[in-house]
Design a protein around this nucleic acid. Structure first.
Lengths: 162, 162
DNA sequence: GGCAGGTTACTCGGATAGCGATTGTCCGAGTTGATCTGG
DNA sequence: CCAGATCAACTCGGACAATCGCTATCCGAGTAACCTGCC
């Protein structure tokens, strides 16, 4: 039960993309430089985000990635699902049917109670993630980062886009 | 982001142990037989439950496993954590400190906002799992299983304990 | 008949291989911007 | 000086290895019941 670290990378990357001016794009190379992460592997995660329709890719010179929607309309859940997949964490293998006191599927009217409980908890988790938007994440980051670092980042962004 | 199937096995096993009369114990062999699961692998998970103090192991003839506490005092969270571990799903590697606009740890007063959001969602998930007790799981299973199967299971249990 | 000791069989527990998924990496396809040439 | 075609560099995208954790298994340690022999 461990989320891949790619989730963390993807969220940070999206948060940075939220700060990119409209009509501009940030290439993988620059993103990797900003976070000091391995370029090739970060590219793989950005590719996932692209496939999920969260970011838009632009090829060629002056190309790169940009958010596909306003930051307010992107939730943490969107990003997590893009990286980790949309399949449920808990998969019911219908153990109750097996063994000496089991019965064929037709005998059971409702899904397994254990699975229902697990799925309910999972739903609560997803709901909490869906509630927080990338916009809020970005705002939090700006508010809680030392002013000196924010200035550095702003300057870096300008040189990266020029 | 996938829970190991051992979690499902452990919960089913605990639910069955909840039906065992007081002072009696059910060995791994019988549990594996009841669910038609590989004995050696199921044993590994029961071992985890034992280490976590959820079940009590009794060695020797007429030995086996029994719940360490009343079913009402065992939550799904206890079982999940016993199998999957107690470490948080999302681990923050402090990406914000890295790269050209990073700063040493002392510059940041609060934990990373992304980590806080992820942990909050995780907390909601855990809370939901902690809310449902093994007692409820057992009751659900009894209520929703066809009467014929319940009778079979009861008979099986008597022969298993004799 | 009761009791003590030894035996036996049954149980758990940790240490040990195999495999799939995540991690990590690479080069080719595609596109855009700049350049160069001719009018 | 301008327009068009060419070129070249930069970008993403999917295909390809390596490593780690989950899956699966085994045999040894320990214990409680049982059986036997003796008192």
């Amino acid at each position: 039960m461990k989320l891949s670290e790619g989730v963390e990378w993807a969220i940070h990357a999206c948060a940075l993309l939220a700060a990119v001016p409209p009509r501009a794009a940030l290439p993988t190379r620059k993103l990797a430089e900003f976070f000091d992460l391995p370029l090739a592997y970060l590219a793989k995660h950005l590719q996932r985000l692209s496939n999920a329709g969260i970011v838009i890719a632009r090829k060629g010179p002056r190309g790169g990635y940009a958010l596909a929607r306003p930051a307010r309309e992107i939730s943490l859940l969107d990003i997590v699902e893009a990286i980790e997949g949309r399949s449920p964490c808990f998969s019911c293998t219908e153990i109750r049917r097996r063994g000496p006191s089991g019965a064929p599927a037709t005998a059971y009217r409702r899904p397994c109670g254990i699975a229902r409980a697990m799925w309910k908890a999972e739903k609560a988790w997803r709901a909490e993630l869906a509630r927080v938007s990338l916009r809020e994440i970005q705002a939090m980051g700006l508010a809680e980062t030392p002013a000196a670092q924010v200035k550095k980042a702003t300057a870096w962004m300008e040189t990266a886009l020029s």
